[in-house]
C-alpha cells in the first residue's frame, strides 16, 4: 500500500475567461507533498502561485486536473467530491500574508472557533486553543484582541488557528511579508517544526529567499508552470539572498 500524501495535485490547469480573453493561470501543475514535508513555492508576481493555492485549498476549482488531500480524492477538474467547505474545515489550515484574524474576537477565540466548527465542545476547543497558543509562545497574549498584538504575534495566532483542526495540509501565502527578517525566519522555522511535529504537509508561497534552507523541497512557478527548483539554484539563492 502506497504512502498517504498530504497533497497529491496532478495536472492542475486553470483557465480564466474564454476566447480572446482567455488567460491560462496554471498549466499542468503537479505537486506531491508528504506528511511532515515543508515545501516552498517561489516565483514572480502573477506567476500563478496564489491561483495554485486557491485550487489546492479547494476555494477555486481547477479547470482540469485532480486533487487528493490526506489520501482522499476531492477534486477532479471542476467536479468536486463531497462538501468542500466541510472538507476544508476538517483538513486544511490557512495562513495568509495579512494575519487575517477576526477583529472582534480575542486571540484564543480566533483559534477556538475552528475547534467549535468541527464539532468540538466549547470547553475542549478552548483548552486545545490554549495549548496551541502556549506551544507557539503566545499563551500570555491569549485574551488580547488582535489589534493589541504585534505582527509576529498575530501571525503566530494565525498559525495556531491553522493547526486547530489538526489538518493534513497547511497553505501559507506569503506569511512573512509583513514581518522583519528575524520574525520572518522565526515564522518559517515554526512551519517546519509544526510540520515535523504534527506530520502536516505545509506549502508556503514566499519571496523571502533568506529562509529557503528551512524547507525540505523548493518549487518554482513561472507563467503558470510548476517545477522543482534545482538544488544548486536554491543553495545559490540561500548564499546570495534576493538574487533568484
Amino acid at each position: 500500500m502506497g504512502e498517504i500524501l498530504a497533497l497529491d495535485a496532478s495536472g492542475l490547469t486553470k483557465v480564466y475567461g474564454s476566447g480572446h480573453t482567455e488567460v491560462v493561470a496554471l498549466r499542468d501543475a503537479s505537486m506531491r507533498v508528504r506528511r511532515g514535508e515543508v515545501v516552498a513555492l517561489l516565483g514572480p508576481s502573477g506567476a500563478g502561485k496564489s491561483t495554485f493555492l486557491l485550487c489546492v485549498g479547494l476555494i477555486n476549482p481547477p479547470t482540469r486536473g485532480g486533487i487528493a488531500i490526506g489520501g482522499r480524492r476531492v477534486q477532479d477538474g471542476a467536479r468536486s467530491f463531497g462538501d468542500l467547505r466541510r472538507f476544508r474545515r476538517e483538513n486544511i489550515g490557512f495562513v495568509f500574508q495579512k494575519s487575517n484574524l477576526i477583529p472582534f474576537l480575542s486571540a484564543i477565540e480566533n483559534v477556538q472557533v475552528v475547534g467549535e466548527l468541527i464539532g468540538r465542545p466549547p470547553s475542549l476547543a478552548r483548552r486545545r486553543a490554549m495549548e496551541l497558543l502556549e506551544a507557539l509562545g503566545v499563551g500570555p497574549r491569549a485574551f488580547n484582541m488582535p489589534t493589541q498584538l504585534s505582527g509576529g504575534e498575530q501571525q503566530r495566532v494565525t498559525v495556531a488557528r491553522a493547526l486547530a483542526n489538526r489538518p493534513s495540509l497547511i497553505l501559507a501565502d506569503e506569511p512573512t511579508a509583513a514581518l522583519d527578517s528575524k520574525r520572518g525566519r522565526q515564522v518559517m522555522e515554526l512551519f517546519r517544526d509544526v510540520a515535523h511535529e504534527h506530520g502536516t504537509g505545509v506549502i508556503v508561497v514566499t519571496h523571502d529567499h533568506r529562509a529557503l534552507d528551512v524547507f525540505d523541497t523548493v518549487y518554482e512557478m513561472e507563467d503558470g508552470m510548476l517545477k522543482p527548483a534545482a538544488h544548486e539554484q536554491v543553495a545559490e539563492t540561500v548564499r546570495q539572498p534576493g538574487t533568484a
Binding site: 467547505r85 472538507f87 476544508r88 474545515r89 490557512f94 477576526i102 477583529p103 472557533v113 466548527l117
Partner: peptide
C-alpha cells in the same frame, strides 16, 4: 471580511 474568512476556514452557511 470576517464572514469571508469564516467561509474560508469552512464555516457552514447555517453558522
Amino acid at each position: 471580511h470576517p464572514l469571508a474568512l469564516l467561509k474560508l476556514i469552512g464555516a457552514p452557511n447555517r453558522t
